[in-house]
Write a protein that binds this DNA or RNA. Structure first.
Length: 708
DNA sequence: TTTAGGG
DNA sequence: CCCTAAA
């Protein structure tokens, strides 16, 4: 266990160390990984702590005007603040230095490479698998409320240098978290190969599973040590009854002693130290101690006793961008890192009630229940935070999303259920051979039978957490860590043949519907299927590969699939599979997208799905009614249950329809659209174009009249 | 988030 | 179908 952790705060303050060659052995990799897992937790805690301190100390926090004019110069210009913690057993030292800028420019940097190593031995390791994390903006609630519209606007990321910068970089995602009285906007960014350390290297738990497949150890009692700001966000929740202090003061039960003194913390640059901690040094100090106690040190013990007590993940970030119908739609597309969607399928409250508390943590457990009661007022707080000016800060607008509120209010303190939802399973690759002369109907049957051949042998559901198989069926979800939000994010299910029944033969001599493997060529293509299906029952555990998982789990209907899968989609609809009662979860089970895996670095193109005539008909009809500028309405009206058709798709389709209608029938391709429909397209298009034109004309006319 | 339009 | 500026 690494005891001396040094985390450096500072923009660009950290360069990712390449993994030493020697670390490439599996064993060393694991230890390397473990070590940095811990560092990662620290990084998150510290980010929260520092952010919180900065924010609570409004007077000292520089105004937002102090942005990073020169991003390269703001690194570590000011001071170092050192903290020390002490575990029951071991001391922890953390060093933090900041560049003395506004909170929004504050970066937490820590050792990286937590999951970097070994993710793929073929790829460069440097910076490849690291995340940057950055506090994009942060304000106190009251500060926020007191801001003028212009200032609010100034806080809009689009107006902010750094924000713009971040936005321009691939893979940046942001989330809002409440931290004490503050709203933090935390941006995480997966490092891109070409620009290592651009933001300073930081680890994010969000991608902890990114490379977890690389090391498919059976998950045992030890849940992945994940930490994220979620944990920090939790703290404020406990404190609603203490108006102006951000932290619960009743945390003295924690066995953590801060050896750090705010006034003499070994800070080499008193100025900054004072700056950050002057107004509430005691609070700040205590907070640190507490956070570390509640979070970090609670994590550590469970390494040894195997008891999972994780009160952290259940508190979701309070500020969410508006979630509505289209969020889901949007998220169905493969946007690997632009936005993290883990909140989409996790319940914020799942571990409240049933949380197992051990030792001195019981106190915090009861507090957690208290949080429950406070949840409504909590929501209310945020509602009052809504900027009146919708233009002011769009990202905040509607932040207390209805979905969130709903989740909160509907949650049952006693019944601590993990709510999961499986969107779909994808059947592993399936090869089908069928004569050209066969009918479509027989093709369907063939595919169906092929599927049945695989699945019919009896199915078993496998659970993967962080890419690792959880094999102990007797563990509770809690023990496994599934009640943890972070875990939910990386929870996956897979279908496996039931070991108790002989799985249908897949390869040689297999079902007639499957590709005969005795032919030389296809033989080479067979193994993947066998591999996947056999995983979990084969004695020689196959090298689990990212791709395997990709075949296993698919929560996204829209994700591109191989042609063979297309037919699968229809024959294996998720309902049937969801019904598999093997799951010990009351609610349905979720398969979160596992797309932060390496795979997702390549943005997959959605599968092409030509519009059928019926769809065209529906589209035309809707557009006739609604016009050409209201694609959202068109979608809602005519394609509401066609999840794979976005309003952009509809708009595009209309565009091509118009084009198609204008060209000669000989030039048209694909399934022919009845001329009647095309005529309607042209008519409709002309009509609405004219409408639009006259709409635009009106104001002008009015203006002209006025001028005259 | 939605619209609009180029690619 | 993708991407993205602009609203």
């Amino acid at each position: 266990m690494v005891l001396d952790k040094r985390l450096h705060y500072g923009f660009n303050g950290y360069q990712v160390p390449p993994m030493p060659r020697a670390t490439r052995s599996a064993r060393r990799r694991r230890s390397f990984k473990k070590k940095h897992e811990e560092n990662k937790m620290c990084a998150f805690d510290l980010l929260a702590i520092v952010a919180g301190n900065l924010l609570l100390d409004k007077e000292s926090a520089p105004s937002s005007s102090n942005t990073t004019a020169d991003k390269n110069q703001c690194a570590a210009v000011n001071s170092n603040v050192k903290y020390e913690w002490q575990d029951e057993e071991k001391p922890l030292k953390v060093e933090a230095c900041d560049h003395g800028s506004a909170a929004r420019n504050f970066f937490v940097c820590g050792p990286s490479q937590v999951h970097g190593q070994g993710c793929s031995s073929k790829e460069p390791l440097v910076a490849q698998n690291n995340l940057n994390l950055r506090l994009a903006s942060a304000l106190t609630k009251s500060d926020w409320a007191g801001r003028s519209d212009a200032e609010k606007l100034g806080n809009d990321k689009s107006k902010n240098d750094m924000g713009t910068f971040a936005r321009k970089v691939e893979g940046v995602s942001s989330e809002y978290r409440e931290f004490g009285d503050c709203i933090l906007e935390v941006e995480t960014k997966r490092a891109v190969k070409d620009e290592p350390g651009r933001f300073g290297m930081v680890l994010s738990s969000n991608v902890a599973n990114a490379c977890s497949l690389e090391d498919p150890v059976v998950l045992d009692a030890k849940p992945p040590a994940l930490a994220s700001l979620d944990s920090s966000a939790k703290v404020p929740l406990c404190r609603n009854h203490i108006p102006n202090s951000s932290y619960p003061t009743n945390r003295d039960d924690v066995n953590v002693v801060s050896r750090d003194d705010d006034e003499n913390s070994g800070c080499s640059h008193p100025i900054t130290k004072k700056k950050f901690f002057r107004p509430a040094p005691r609070i700040g100090n205590r907070r640190i101690r507490k956070i570390m106690a509640s979070k970090y040190w609670k994590v550590a013990p469970r390494f040894k006793d195997g008891t999972v007590s994780n009160p952290d993940g259940d508190l979701k970030p309070v500020f969410r961008k508006r979630k509505n119908y289209y969020r889901q739609q949007r998220s169905e597309r493969l946007y690997p890192f632009k936005k993290r969607k883990h909140y989409a399928y996790s319940s914020p409250s799942n571990s409240y009630g049933g949380m197992s508390c051990n030792g001195d943590a019981s106190g915090s457990c009861s507090r957690m229940h208290g949080v429950t009661g406070a949840s409504s007022s909590f929501v209310a707080q945020h509602t009052s935070l809504q900027p009146r000016d919708s233009h002011g800060m769009r990202t905040f607008n509607g932040g207390a999303s209805s979905s969130f509120v709903g989740q909160r209010t509907s949650f049952q303190p006693r019944d601590c259920h993990v709510k999961l939802r499986i969107k779909s399973f994808r059947v592993p690759e399936l090869l089908v051979e069928i004569p050209e002369s066969s009918t479509v109907g027989s093709l369907k049957r063939t595919v169906m039978e092929a599927v049945t051949a695989i699945l019919g042998g009896g199915l078993r559901v496998g659970v993967l957490l962080q890419g690792k198989k959880v094999r102990d069926d007797n563990k509770t979800l809690l023990q496994t860590g599934i009640s943890h939000n972070n875990q939910l994010d990386s929870l996956g299910f897979c279908l496996e043949p039931n070991p108790s029944r002989k799985p249908p033969s897949l390869c040689p001599g297999g079902s007639p519907f499957l590709l005969q493997c005795d032919t030389p060529e296809p033989l080479s293509r067979c193994p993947p299927t066998a591999d996947v299906v056999c995983q979990g029952i084969c004695t020689g555990s196959p090298e689990p590969h990212v791709n395997n998982l990709g075949n296993y789990i698919e929560s996204d209907h829209d994700s591109a699939s191989s042609p063979a899968d297309i037919s699968m989609d229809k024959s294996t609809n998720s309902k049937a599979l969801v019904a598999v009662p093997a799951m010990n979860v009351e609610a349905l089970a979720v398969v979160p997208a596992h797309r932060n895996s390496k795979q997702s670095e390549i943005v997959q193109r959605r599968i092409r799905r030509p519009f059928s005539v019926a769809e065209v008909e529906a589209l035309v009809q809707a557009v006739e009614k609604l016009g050409t500028g209201r694609w959202r309405d068109v979608k809602l009206r005519a394609f509401d249950n066609a999840k794979h058709r976005t309003y952009v798709d509809l708009k595009d389709k209309w565009k091509t329809l118009v084009h198609t209608a204008r060209i000669s029938p000989q030039q048209r391709r694909g399934e022919p659209v009845p001329q009647e429909l095309l005529d309607r397209v042209l008519t409709t298009h002309a009509y609405w174009s004219q409408q639009q034109a006259s709409q635009q004309l009106k104001p002008q006319q009015a203006e002209t009249c006025l001028l005259l």
